[in-house]
Design a protein around this nucleic acid. Sequence first.
DNA 1: GTGTAACCGAGACGGTACGTCATGTCTTGGC
DNA 2: GCCAAGACATGACGTACCGTCTCGGTTACAC
Lengths: 198, 198, 198, 198
Amino acid sequence: MPAVNSQPRRARSGNRRDEAARLAVLHAADDLLVEHGFGALTVEAIARRAGVAKQTIYRWWPSKVEILLDTLIEDSAKRLPVPTELPTAGSIRAYLRDFADFLTEDPAGKCLLTLLAEAQHDVGTAARFHERYLEPRQIAEREMLTLAAESGEISLVLDPEATMDALLGPIVYCALTGAAVPGDLVDTLVETLLRPRA
Amino acid sequence: MPAVNSQPRRARSGNRRDEAARLAVLHAADDLLVEHGFGALTVEAIARRAGVAKQTIYRWWPSKVEILLDTLIEDSAKRLPVPTELPTAGSIRAYLRDFADFLTEDPAGKCLLTLLAEAQHDVGTAARFHERYLEPRQIAEREMLTLAAESGEISLVLDPEATMDALLGPIVYCALTGAAVPGDLVDTLVETLLRPRA
Amino acid sequence: MPAVNSQPRRARSGNRRDEAARLAVLHAADDLLVEHGFGALTVEAIARRAGVAKQTIYRWWPSKVEILLDTLIEDSAKRLPVPTELPTAGSIRAYLRDFADFLTEDPAGKCLLTLLAEAQHDVGTAARFHERYLEPRQIAEREMLTLAAESGEISLVLDPEATMDALLGPIVYCALTGAAVPGDLVDTLVETLLRPRA
Amino acid sequence: MPAVNSQPRRARSGNRRDEAARLAVLHAADDLLVEHGFGALTVEAIARRAGVAKQTIYRWWPSKVEILLDTLIEDSAKRLPVPTELPTAGSIRAYLRDFADFLTEDPAGKCLLTLLAEAQHDVGTAARFHERYLEPRQIAEREMLTLAAESGEISLVLDPEATMDALLGPIVYCALTGAAVPGDLVDTLVETLLRPRA
DNA sequence: GTGTAACCGAGACGGTACGTCATGTCTTGGC
DNA sequence: GCCAAGACATGACGTACCGTCTCGGTTACAC
């Protein structure tokens, strides 16, 4: 199926950026990634699938990694907001469980794992991934922990940064190795590292 | 530089496999990976660097991933043995610290991260990586925990598998994100998840 | 020497075929053939010599044989037209002498011999060589003989096809064996097989 | 079918040349040539087919061309002797007809055409082909014509060399272009160029 | 209205690497 | 010393993508 969806697509907007093309590229990239893996995610394949010229991709994205980053950032803002307003042990636990589900079930989770992987292969990817995704999220997560600690909801054993590594690390590691995240793992870590009130 | 090292190389033994070529390929692959990253790790570049014909590589390895696996398995048997003989909380903690050093400092650690990453991109790689590296190691690690628990050295809060995920996950996650592994993180996790005697 | 010649080469016309590249390939192929023989005529060498990417060759020609056919057809239309307008014994004799010179001296003659040879090695080549070069030319040659006979210029002893075989065969055979075509051979054959008027 | 024929082949003769291997190579080469064409005639394929090691071929023949030459020389001595004892117009005509049959029907004729073709591609082959096959035969053929002329059996219009070119050329040309040799062509040429007695 | 400028699809181009095949040389070990 | 077996360095094969480039065609905005 080459193009996007039914409508005539003749909304081509002259000298403005074509939003339909932008979405077609984003969806094509994600579809290819989920269906055939990163190996099949070539710019030519994306262009083919999206019904778009290769040049249109290169005009707007410096690399296919940036396409995935766009997808990831949009999707994880929607699907996985960091609870920074009055966070409690409960909302943090829920966030971690959502994160586990996101990684193992959502197409955009595949996207995150892929970018984390590609960042190991290429320093440019690593830099952009940190800059655009990882660091903003880590800042929000640390704020979440700090606020919860200040409001007395939790009591940290380690500093916020190490705590988040200890909480997220096992989830990411399970996802990377294809294992399910053990249910009581998250609970136990929350219990021992956050020491929730009461 | 065609590498190899000093000795006359005339150990090429007729219709037997050339051990010098095998080592040259392994070292060339590791060197290229460390120096220029996975992107520069092409079969042609390995052959060039090793002073070996491309066909010689394809004769013995089905893919460059398998070359890295060979390197990883040999090196991590040497550098990172799982302490399965009379394990104690101390030896387990030492193992985890060695693991963190291995990942962040050793060339072969780069190799492990690369394979873990490439396994996200390609299901074949994932299968081989699990089969040849991850599962044998996980079995040994679970045995380590079980023996230590049975001998009363430690007392597990979670089952062995989840425990290892909780211990290794943060270390791997830090390595993947380029962060140093916080020193007290390992200690705290050992303390709370293994509950060492006395 | 990447060849091409003086003009700015910026005639590359977007998504249209690059005529400069086409000519560079044709000339590179012919040059290599004449200088180093068919054995050195690899697609890679042609690409190198023409200053062109290998894929550009494969995009337009299914094989190096087809490149030679293109050269041969263009050159022999220029250098060796079949005299089909009011042919006489004299013009036919001149055609045969031109043919002998073409085979033994012209670079494109080398091309014809090479294709005739390669047609012995490969049935696909044989088919294309007949289809694109040999048959059209044979048709023209038979027409030449028929017209000359009908206008009373010559009187055939054998049918046109056998006559052409008897006339061309010795010339081709001499060229194949590296011998000069004896001067009186052509004359004698014309005399005895065409029986010119007066 | 890897090997040659039934008998145990265990006549392998220690430090003398293995005649069975020699014949196996010759036959394998000819079979491959006839069955799959010159393109499939690789040294590896010959070795495989003959059940012989590659080195055994390289030990005795400098190239696959020399293998074909061996076959051709043996076969054409048997199948196509030049009638140099009391040649007549009739025996010469018979020789030409045999030659036509040999070229178009006999496996060894395929061999001759192939060598003639390969000689166009490679100067080394051309030299060896002339030296070992073509020149000895041309000498015998000229002697045939000279003897017949001296004994008054025929009367030459052209010198012997040009005459043989004129007689053989059309036959070879027809074979090369895949055409049948017209029956009356040989007769007419014999009639006009040899002018048989009475 | 009519340039004109930026977008778009299409796709040719010079490259690099892929994985395969045949070359001719070499060495082992058996006979 | 010959042989089967087969590893080796070399280099061409034909394919897939890379990222750059021009072409022609299509709006949308400025004049």
